[in-house]
Amino acid sequence: MENESTRAVTVVGEKAAKRLRRRRSAVSKLGLRHWQLWLLILPGLVYLVLFCYLPMYGVIVAFENYSPILGVFGSPWVGWTNFRSLFNSYWFEIMLVNTLELSLYSLPVNTIFPIVLAFLINEVRHSWFKKSVQTISYAPYFVSVIVTVGMCYTFTDAGYGVVNKLFGLFGVEAKDWMYEPAAFNFIYILSGLWQGCGWWAIIYVAALSSVDPALHEAATIDGAGRFKRIWHINLPAILPTAIILFIMAMGGIMNVGFEKAFLMQNSSNLVASEIIATYAYKVSIAATGYKNYGFGAAVGLFNSVINIVLLLAANFGAKLLGKESLW
């Protein structure tokens, strides 16, 4: 009797203890004792839900014939129709090629030039010269994209543009270059380089300045010349940074500056300047008649999917090479 009751008590006690333990571990797993931390991160989470995850969920309108009155839930489901009309569209091939071209040209340019600039800056011994070069070279980063494109328009004007005046010295015929499809990629990349090169070089300059000077001294004693030292010491020092930035850029390949391409676009250069993102915007939000949101969302989703695939591929490639990777 007595034994039984004590056993019952022990069993009950053990059960209670187990429950307590479970609850405690749940509390610590969710960090509920840190309710103040939850409160601190709450605004950030609400932001992500509203402006990142809700739009991700809203991607389902890509499979709908979206109507603003019926809303995301009420609009008729059309399956892959929007995608089919995208792939069959006359513009599809043109803008896919334009997007890829723009990215594939600017990616190496925007990787190599900042590295070269950083190497050159790293060789400078007079600090006043170094400082002025750096300060001036990233000034354009603070110029807005609207002003940059505006400058492109005025500089290349056939009438008074300074570019045409300079070209005139070499006997080149004056043209409105911003209206020439053939010049679009070149202007886009060159102006981008002007804006970003000095800025992107900052990271590499920092990576180079962290190289131990003893390495250079030792190499010099061993008879290595400047180029040998740059090749065998400086280049490996910046390689991890360069690879990470390259992978990140691959992930953004299809996001290639909508904001700038849109501003540089005009009716004359459309064959070169129409990229996927600008097309999505024009058929939906900016459309004057029927705003085909479903189709626009499908175009955008196509963009995002290619981005992810390229990012994963670049990361996988970097891993295969046994170098840095994102994860």
């Binding site: 960090g31 992500l48 402006f51 739009p55 809203g58 939906s284 969302a297």
Partner: peptide
């Protein structure tokens, strides 16, 4: 402890987005 999961929730948005139109609709 939930830091890791929260970090994932934050990082995911860097690599995938709904796109302009769904954001506009929201």
């Amino acid at each position: 402890r939930p830091r890791g999961v929260l970090m994932g929730i934050f990082l995911f948005t860097m690599y995938f987005s709904g796109g302009t139109i769904p954001t506009y609709l929201v």
